[in-house]
């Protein structure tokens, strides 16, 4: 073989599982950024042709707050087994593949770009029902028996999400009085722990594959853990995820009444004060995650303009956090 085939690892993994005659075609590498390499391709074998997505981890900070690809894959398989709309887990990479850590899932067509989902006339009808549908889906996810996801018990977010983020914040060792005010408020106003459920942890536009009929699949399971279901509702309502439509608290597309109605119709029970607490938590968390990108840029050797911008954008999230604590923002 001459020259380096950038897809040799994927091809080898495919041949190991689907036979020597299996091949891949129509390869597409979307520019999604982040710390994953995503490759979309057709798997062609005797049984036919199907479109798949490969996700390989390219960067792993020693203090990464995210679940490993192996854990994500196992949780996606559990969710899929319960009929939750998640891309079908196909296989996980093994050391013998030489493809690093990652996995392959089925491809789900649709739109993930928040600006297009919120702005395009094509999705005008879709947006009408999205908050209610999101509520129903989250209720479905939160009905997965947490005992099935015992593998998530040891992660810091499952043990105590607030302590986990305080520790991450302390690790970046930068004085941020605004984040301290958020942490203090969260500490003093903490709701009683509700029912313990499987939490997706990053349920918001950008991680939802949307078609005209609504949510087709829930992507990006790297923040999943066990905890309060109100966390997923609160994160979806966090101001940072309204993408230019701050007047619509649910993801920039809906009202809380619709989200809550969908959640209750799906068998869930809403504690709206707890949802608000998790919104404040979400702002604190998003500020800390922006600090994390700056830390990786300045001290972690993973440099780039986007990571640099994240560092400075921490102030924007702090502003929203303080305005929310003052009661000026909802």
């Amino acid at each position: 073989m001459s020259g380096a085939d950038p897809f040799a690892d994927i091809k080898q993994a495919i041949r190991r599982r689907f036979g020597r005659s299996a091949r891949i075609e129509n390869i597409d590498v979307p520019t999604l950024g982040g710390s994953n390499r995503t490759v979309i391709f057709d798997l062609v074998e005797s049984a036919g042709r199907r479109r798949l997505v490969s996700r390989q981890e390219t960067y792993q900070a020693e203090d990464s707050p995210f679940r490993s690809p192996a854990e994500q894959f196992r949780v996606m398989r559990i969710a899929h087994g319960h009929g939750f709309p998640v891309p079908e887990p196909v296989f996980e990479y093994e050391p013998a593949d030489g493809a690093g850590e990652g996995f392959v899932t089925g491809f789900v067509a649709g739109e993930t770009m928040p600006k297009r989902i919120l702005g395009s006339a094509e999705f005008a009808e879709t947006r009408q029902h999205l908050a209610e549908q999101a509520g129903r889906l989250l209720a479905q996810l939160h009905s997965v028996p947490p005992g099935d996801c015992a593998l998530l018990e040891p992660c810091a977010d499952s043990i105590d999400a607030l302590a986990a983020y305080r520790d991450r914040f302390d690790h970046y060792d930068e004085a941020h009085p605004a984040i301290e005010l958020g942490l203090r408020w969260l500490h003093r106003n903490r709701p009683a722990p509700g029912k313990r459920v499987l939490v997706h942890g990053d349920f918001r536009l950008g991680n939802l594959m949307i078609g005209r009929e609504g949510i087709r699949a829930v992507l990006d399971w790297e923040c999943c853990h066990l905890g309060s279901g109100m966390e997923d509702l609160g994160w979806l309502c966090t101001r940072s995820w309204r993408f230019g439509h701050p007047e619509l608290p649910v993801g920039g597309f809906g009202e809380k009444a619709a989200l809550f109605a969908g959640y209750e119709a799906g068998g869930g029970s809403v504690d709206s004060a707890a949802v608000h607490w998790w919104e404040v938590f979400g702002l604190m968390r998003w500020a800390v995650l922006n600090m994390m990108q700056a830390h990786g840029h300045v001290l972690g050797g993973r440099r780039g303009v986007v990571f640099a911008a994240c560092g400075r954008n921490t102030a924007l999230v702090e502003y929203d956090l303080l305005m929310t604590l003052k009661g000026s923002y909802r």
């Binding site: 009085p177 605004a178 005010l181 954008n313 102030a315 924007l316 702090e318 502003y319 303080l322």
Partner: peptide
């Protein structure tokens, strides 16, 4: 008072960033 003091600082940062 603490909230207002810190909001001053954050408004200053945001005035530079965006």
């Amino acid at each position: 008072a603490a909230l207002d003091l810190v909001l001053f600082q954050v408004i200053d940062k945001v005035s530079v960033v965006r």
